[in-house]
Design a protein around this nucleic acid. Sequence first.
DNA 1: CATTTGACTCTAT
DNA 2: AATAGAGCCAAAT
Length: 106
Amino acid sequence: MSASFADGVYAIVRQIPPGCVITYGAIARVLGDPRKARQVGWAMALTPAASEPIPAHRVINARGDIPGGHASRRYRLHRKRLEAEGVVFMADGRVDLERYLWLPSS
DNA sequence: CATTTGACTCTAT
DNA sequence: AATAGAGCCAAAT
């Protein structure tokens, strides 16, 4: 069976409930290697359009923000979707990790 | 096969 | 507080 890191990432991201978010580091940690945070990002970046069930917009960085800057297209998309799910963004344009960070197996 | 790069994170300066 | 550097790994070229 496939043991690609991306597969594990997708498996977790797919299980993120609405109105919740998760960080790259958290995913990597759950997968067993907290240092693979970058690869999580890679997996997300590769998230093909065919991966619709994969809510990549719920995946953010350790700061509760999105890399690339708030001017990035994905930031607006993520924010819009998260807000649609009831997630409230802070004035900084960040998500309150303390409040929305979701961990698998919970 | 070697080099580059990237949606990260942490630590140090 | 902000910036810079290092660590780590996989996919792309």
